[in-house]
Design a binder for these strands. Structure first.
Lengths: 116, 116
DNA sequence: TCAAGATATGAATAACTGTTCATATATTAA
DNA sequence: TTAATATATGAACAGTTATTCATATCTTGA
């Protein structure tokens, strides 16, 4: 509690932390972004899109599951700017929104010591 | 569906994606790690620990909430190797597990164009 | 050994979220 | 315009998860 031997440093760190805590809104945005990429079904979609842009039909082919489920997941990823889309005739073609996405996935894998 | 103009490339991308899809177990590990850092209450803890190691009492001071809730969150973060702990007398001192954590948070923020 | 402080944990409830099913919208070809 | 294909979406249900409350464990000082 108050007396933890390192009281001085820890208390100062706690004060700095409290003072510099990001706004609730920023926290919620970061949270939403990580939640978006944290679901296994959505991670599969991201791993699939590493190999290039694809329309929904082919994403379903690559990751499995129903068209409806995949479509719901695509929406969540798009709402959070993890992926982007463009129309191409009857199809909607999806791709990763930017390089940050692959970078984050690779960081996670190096942290977990697993191959992508 | 099958005929999307880019059928050729997309189909190949889908095949490559399916062939190179990480094992279910790897997906689940990455998922668990992102889930661990995606909850607002846990993000606050990570943002707090950027300012240095702290014992539970000071973490509670920095992020708010009850001791019990914080302790539950600390466990989840520790189980996922996001943070580590060491005992110091009566206290348990927590800190970020490695540099990957800060790197991921910073990547997320640059993606979202928000300051930490 | 006993009391007090610091942290952890089990169980229960409440809130959240993913999937499914049915259906809607949008584009192209006829 | 109509039929067919591709994708999206609303509602409902099921599974997951965060918080709270009560209590347990562990460490230190007396």
């Amino acid at each position: 509690m108050q007396n933890c031997g390192h009281e001085e440093e820890h208390h100062l760190a706690a004060q700095r932390a409290a003072r510099n805590m990001p706004e609730e809104e920023a926290i919620l945005r970061v949270s939403a972004a990580f939640k978006a990429i944290s679901e296994p079904s959505r991670l599969k979609i991201l791993f699939a899109l590493r190999h290039g842009e694809m329309c929904v039909y082919h994403i379903v082919e690559a990751v499995g599951g129903t068209q409806s489920a995949v479509s719901h997941q695509l929406r969540i990823l798009k709402d959070n700017r993890i992926i982007k889309s463009r129309r191409d005739g009857q199809n909607i073609v999806y791709s990763l929104a930017d390089e940050h996405i692959v970078a984050v996935l690779e960081l996670a894998c190096s942290h977990l010591k697993c191959e992508l």
